[in-house]
Amino acid sequence: MSVPHAIIASFPDTPSFYHAAEKVRDAGYKKWDTYSSFPVHGMPQAQGQPRSKVPIFTFCGGITGFALGLSIVWYMNYFDYPLIVGGKPFFSPVFPFPIMYELTILLAAFGTLGGMFLTNLLPQHHNPFFESDTFLEVAGDRLLIAIEARDPKFDVQSTRQFLESIGGTNIEEITV
């Protein structure tokens, strides 16, 4: 027996797509998303989504990189094998600054990419959406809104009617 996973509806152009997203948000749905092959300006607000949490990962990566840069230079040139260069102090936070600078950026970049994957719950190679031909057309120019069955307000009949009422066409049920 096939269990409904989501109901998808298509929209003809970006403005109607955007305004439909605002209506889904205002109707109180929680487990839903928009699908488009390009980022739509202002869509996070229209979907009522909070600010992305990716910068937190960036910050953690950056702090780690800075501390790592500082500590490797201290450990290697001061603690483990003090290296005499021109009779200068073995350690100072000034001369290895480029090391700290570069490692800060390096680990912050890894944090950002990792944060993007974590916040988006990727990699996720299987998803019931991929079975739908309509969904695959998002790669071209289709604009979709999908309300998922795990939403507490989800009901096959009323959700379908709701999507029709906000201008959705080609309404399709995706099953698992």
């Binding site: 997203a21 998303d33 928009t34 699908y35 488009s36 092959s37 390009f38 980022p39 739509v40 869509m43 996070p44 979907q47 989504q49 600010r51 992305s52 949490k53 990716v54 910068p55 950002t112 990419l113 944060g115 993007m116 994957f117 916040t119 988006n120 990727l122 990699p123 996720q124 190679h125 299987h126 998803n127 959406f129 991929f130 998002v138 790669a139």
Partner: peptide
């Protein structure tokens, strides 16, 4: 592609990243 689905949520985090 790591299972990218063009979702609004994906784009939001992607654009921030």
């Amino acid at each position: 592609a790591m299972g990218w689905r063009n979702a609004g949520n994906h784009w939001r985090n992607y654009e921030m990243a």
